[in-house]
Nucleic acid binder design. Structure first.
Lengths: 119, 119
DNA sequence: AGGTTGATAAACAAGTTAGTTGATTAGCAA
DNA sequence: TTGCTAATCAACTAACTTGTTTATCAACCT
């Protein structure tokens, strides 16, 4: 079983917070400093800094250096990795529907839904 | 600011766990019962049942009734909602690259990167 | 050097999550 | 009824997350 868990773990976890998603949204319009990113929120700058660390650890953002500022940049590649994971199962499901359709047409009326196949 | 947070919160949070993602992967091959879903894992059935509750609350899966069994089904629509959110910012970023390209071509050599514009 | 600004580190409180074990409900089969 | 199976509920622990406050670091500016 293909468990490359931790990368996806941290990425999905990072997006499971409205503040962090809002930061992503803002960064999609261009890089920004921690102060700029913290401005729209009621929470402290330190808290926003931690959120950015979470996003950075998930590799959803990167940071560069500009004097004392540490601008944050979006990393679109990581976002695409997430859509890739999701699409993997969304597409499989569409195939599933086609097979199900075939089964229903060939043996219509089979009631016992005891699926017990093992991979 | 368009905050329809909680739905995305629970969905991303639900996928931030390898056990739950593995359950999604298994369900993409067709519905399964709690016992069947619990089999590949070392943890107890109760723990898997809780994971399924998390997925259900996030509306990533639904459950039907078959006697004492409660088969779990994937809900692909919710997965598409996540890709929709992500693509929203991935696409914006591509536009951003085009604008950045234009800026760099028109004023090449500008050194003071003191971005301070406010939306 | 001294002062200010941008950002982080460390320590803590409060809340949440993931897992456990033990008991309980609900349906099916004799 | 009795027993078996599928699944959940309840109570509890351990670990983690989010936010705070206080203190520190690094780079710039007179």
């Amino acid at each position: 079983m293909n468990f490359e868990s931790t990368a996806l773990d941290s990425a999905f976890m990072a997006l499971a917070d409205p503040v962090r998603r809002s930061i992503i949204a803002r960064l999609s319009r261009g890089p920004a400093t921690v102060n700029e990113l913290a401005e729209p929120f009621e929470i402290s700058k330190q808290a926003v800094s931690k959120h950015i660390q979470v996003l950075e650890q998930a590799q959803l953002v990167t940071r560069t250096r500009d004097a004392q500022r540490r601008p944050v940049h979006l990393n679109p590649a990581r976002l695409e990795a997430l859509t890739a994971w999701i699409n993997q199962y969304r597409l499989v499901r569409e195939e599933q529907f086609r097979s199900l359709d075939a089964v229903l047409q060939s043996s219509a009326g089979h009631h016992g839904a005891k699926a017990k196949e093992k991979p």
